[in-house]
């Protein structure tokens, strides 16, 4: 092992065969480098005499370039077998951070590109990456690394779990590109909800997701468009919910409008059974003395005499 100084223009820093960090926040690293310099130099191998290849430290190199540095120290290790180099690289990274799903995807992609077989990855690398040693999982990560950059960025930024990433796989590239600006503004749970609802509506109505997206855009266009993407994302989510659960949404709205119609007082809370699964309704109100209790009870009595109140009771038996 030896340390040398290498110009940042050296071809060692152009060969990306071991690079797997493409998406990361540069600002913190910039501050750190400005404060204390390069405490841990990047390391690599000497492929041929005088021909170096950077293995670990890509983020530091990218930021050092941004800072206008000309030269950095470079640690050269004596190893030539790619699989062993990967093992060292993964172990070193794992020692100081948790590898993200996107990191693992690029590691697998690069290993496959170097000719390391799926079988070798399954046996020697999967456990190191803490993923199930199955070819299907290797394919999953390979697929992830092939996604367009905007989608990968959202997966990394939102730390999306495997289930949601698989949902994204089910969409065509142009559909994902149409969805990403909205998904960026939603939480993980809402992203899952949107992707599932859209897919399920498409399957039920025998449409392509792109057609549903276009129909929503046309509708929004007629309403003079919403420039705020976060609000638009929320509207899109609501729109899908209505389309996905039309009967439930209609029932819920009918219930709400009936409460308005009979002037249900806001100080008395009324709740149907969850999802109207049972007939019972629950009312609750607060009172601090006898008079308040009498007052509320009298309000309820008046409400109970309203003819329309019957419509609140959901289930009806068939006529005999």
């Amino acid at each position: 092992m030896k340390t040398i100084n290498l110009s940042l223009n050296n071809p060692a820093f152009q060969d990306e065969r071991f690079r797997f960090s493409y998406i990361f926040a540069q600002d913190d690293l910039k501050t750190s480098l400005l404060l204390s310099g390069l405490i841990y130099p990047p390391w690599g191998i000497e492929e041929k005499k005088g021909k170096f290849i950077l293995v670990s430290g890509w983020k530091r190199v990218v930021v050092a370039r941004e800072l206008g540095w000309k030269e950095i120290p470079f640690l050269v290790i004596q190893e030539t077998k790619p699989e062993i180099i990967w093992v060292k690289l993964i172990a070193e990274n794992k020692a100081h951070r948790q590898l993200q799903m996107v990191d693992k995807a690029f590691i697998i992609k690069k290993m496959l590109k170097m000719g390391i077989s799926r079988e070798r990855i399954k046996k020697g690398i999967c456990s190191l990456l803490e993923i199930p040693p199955l070819v299907e999982w290797i394919s999953f990560y390979e697929h992830l690394a092939e996604l367009e950059r905007e989608t990968i960025k959202v997966i990394a930024a939102k730390n999306l779990p495997e289930y949601i990433v698989r949902l994204l796989f089910d969409y065509a590239q142009e559909e994902r590109q149409a969805l990403i600006p909205w998904l960026e503004h939603l939480s993980q749970n809402k992203i899952k909800e949107v992707l599932e609802n859209l897919q399920e509506i498409a399957l039920r109505d025998q449409l392509r997701p792109a057609q549903i997206i276009s129909a929503f855009r046309a509708l929004e266009g007629d309403r003079k468009g919403e420039k705020d993407l976060a609000r638009q994302a929320e509207k899109w989510r609501e729109h899908l919910k209505e389309k996905r659960f039309p009967c439930f949404q209609a029932t819920f709205l009918k219930f709400q409008s009936l409460l308005k119609e009979i002037n249900w007082p806001p100080e008395i809370e009324i709740k149907p059974s969850p999802f109207f699964e049972r007939n019972d309704l629950r009312v609750s109100f607060e009172f601090t003395n006898e008079n308040e209790l009498k007052h509320m009870a009298s309000k309820l009595l008046t409400l109970s005499q309203n003819k329309k109140i019957k419509q609140l009771f959901f289930g009806k038996s068939p006529k005999k």
């Binding site: 399920e200 399957l203 996905r244 039309p246 999802f275 699964e277």
Partner: peptide, 8 residues
């Protein structure tokens, strides 16, 4: 997968 499901 396309049914109008609720949680029972």
């Amino acid at each position: 997968l396309t049914q109008e499901f609720i949680r029972g």
